[in-house]
Design a protein around this nucleic acid. Structure first.
Lengths: 155, 155
DNA sequence: ATAATATTGTTGTAAATGCAACATATTTTT
DNA sequence: AAAAATATGTTGCATTTACAACAATATTAT
């Protein structure tokens, strides 16, 4: 039916997507550094995820952060040391886990940073129509769906 | 017009795309390891790029590989040591550069690997319609275009 | 002509990341 | 009940990656 022909490396969707991600990450990082925050981009992401997933355990956070358990633990060490997150032992499915919550100070930090980067994000987002963005969300979801069926992430 | 509202980290396109890229990379890597090739995935990518860009210089290869100059040089060291690529001094815009070409052995290696992974790739690609893929290419190109206007990659 | 700037590639180093091994506790199997 | 398997988090290490400094050469500015 569809004549499947293996393309060259730089012609594959994986390549194009990786290139795009690299650019987006660079942009975020440049913004973050220019504004001189005292937490890293990963820490900000963790903070945001925890803020809307109260009582999440480390492994689940790792899955959302797209990091492994080890590095997720390290990110939390740093956030806890800065007093932005608190960890406590609890159980999930009758198993001991480390759950966490964002502190008052953490909320302030999260809101402060979100507010400051909002301007930059929206100025860039202005380049894309609502339809474009919706379409992209759809497509990515479809792609991911198929991938998740085949690859085990092992986190 | 479009009410721009900053979403949470896991709701952004950047996040979804990074997740997808991570899955794709993992799939490629798993395939590569299972088949037990004696060159890395990066080396394979470099080989493929050089094969269709005869006489490319290192910096230009770095841009296509999405690596920095240092690591591109290291990948080439390895490929040269294995006799898959040859490097030679030449000039580009009146400047001394190291250009490269793929060797006969390199061609055989490239074709051997491409043939072996073709089966896996096409079995996965079967999940997507031609239209889906085309649409994705389009969207990604548009996104990249805007990003490249704002971010300098500094390679 | 001399100095300043830019391009290309290499080296060294620090940071990020992933992975395997481990410790602990719980569930499932036998 | 004992053993095997599973889930969770931590530690250590090896690999990857990014980044800055450097060397060599060429271009541009003064």
């Amino acid at each position: 039916m569809t004549d499947i022909k293996l393309k060259h490396y730089t012609e594959n969707i994986h390549y194009e997507m990786e290139q795009t991600v690299r650019l987006m990450k660079k942009l975020q990082l440049q913004m973050f550094q220019k504004l001189g925050f005292d937490i890293s981009l990963d820490e900000y992401a963790a903070l945001d995820i925890v803020s809307i997933n109260a009582g999440i355990c480390q492994r689940d956070l790792a899955k959302l952060l797209l990091k492994d358990r080890a590095n997720t633990g390290r990110i939390l060490d740093s956030l806890e040391e800065k007093g932005l997150v608190t960890r406590f032992i609890d159980t999930k499915n009758n198993r001991l886990v480390k759950k966490m919550g964002i502190t008052e100070k953490g909320y302030r930090k999260l809101n402060e940073i979100t507010k400051k980067i909002e301007v930059h994000i929206s100025s860039f987002a202005g380049n894309f129509s609502h339809d474009d963005v919706e379409k992209m969300h759809e497509m990515l979801k479809k792609f991911r769906g198929h991938l998740e069926d085949v690859v085990e992430m092992n986190i």
